[in-house]
């Protein structure tokens, strides 16, 4: 227990990596979904992960907040090594925000309550303070006027922006995005990407699984290409899009950019 509480958060000037993934291996039964993943993310870095469906990209980022359990290798988030201890996992989750493909807002409570819930129950903030923080972030994703509505009354793009605000309310050190625009109509993709770009400019550490290559070109520090559970290529966006080295990457890029 003392070990858990004693783990330090990032002090200014510390250049310790925000996320360290070392030889991560994961199986679903006998199926080897993640194979020897090594990845280090420093504070403020923006990473875009792409790859064909079933390549393990979602599974990988879901391991970072233990929505998926891994069998081999290690994950260290903000200096806290991941174990199977529930307290430890919850400590890591408090520092890691996540945005899902299908938003996963809580449909039975209002937008405002969605944003307050974890502040009140996890961070133990008084309600008034939690609501203030929630309204701040709802303002930032430009949806404050919908605060009293229920998620079911909003459009997909609005719901996803609320989901981003909900995650930000916990003031996380890292944000994970799991295909945040894949379930949206084309007209709504932009409003969500705009919020994500703004967030990137503010220096948030971000890992985004996405097929929005425009987004990758504008904000990513590194683009990671995954296939068959492994990292095939890892490069800055200009290099990644102009001179992809592996044949598999070239094929993938030609398929998603070639129309």
């Amino acid at each position: 227990m003392s070990e858990v509480t004693a783990s330090p958060t990032t002090e200014p000037g510390s250049d310790r990596p925000m996320i360290e993934i070392d030889h991560l291996n994961k199986w679903y039964g006998n199926f080897h979904v993640l194979r020897d993943i090594n990845l280090t993310v420093t504070k403020g870095e923006r990473i875009v992960i792409c790859g064909p469906s079933g390549s393990g990209k979602s599974t990988m980022i879901r391991c970072i907040n233990h929505l998926e359990e891994h069998q081999q290798g290690s994950i260290v988030v903000n200096g806290v090594p991941m174990t199977n201890d529930v307290k430890r996992i919850e400590q890591i989750r408090r520092n890691v925000g996540m945005v899902f493909q299908h938003f996963n807002l809580f449909p039975h409570i209002t937008v405002l309550e969605n944003c307050c819930l974890s502040q009140i129950w996890v961070q133990k903030k008084p309600r008034a303070e939690a609501e203030k923080t929630a309204m701040e972030y709802l303002e930032r994703v430009q949806i404050a006027d919908q605060a009293q509505k229920y998620p079911g009354q909003l459009s997909g793009g609005q719901q996803q922006r609320v989901a981003i605000a909900r995650a930000l309310c916990m003031r996380p050190e890292v944000m994970l995005f799991d295909e945040p625009t894949s379930a949206l109509d084309p007209e709504m993709i932009k409003e969500v990407l705009d919020v994500m770009i703004e967030l990137a400019h503010e220096g948030m550490t971000m890992l985004c699984v996405t097929h929005e290559m425009g987004f990758a070109k504008t904000v990513a520090d590194r683009v990671i290409f995954m296939d068959q559970g492994q990292i095939i290529e890892e490069a800055p966006p200009t290099e990644f899009f102009n001179n992809p080295r592996s044949e598999r990457t070239q094929l993938f890029l030609s398929q998603i950019l070639g129309h």
Binding site: N65, H66, L67, R94, M98, H102, L117, W121, V122, A167
Partner: peptide
């Protein structure tokens, strides 16, 4: 997804069960 969203926000089992 509802349970996962609760987990990602750091809510414990009883909180997720009781609140979500």
């Amino acid at each position: 997804g509802q349970n996962e969203a609760g987990q990602a926000l750091g809510l414990g089992y009883w909180q997720r069960t009781g609140l979500i």
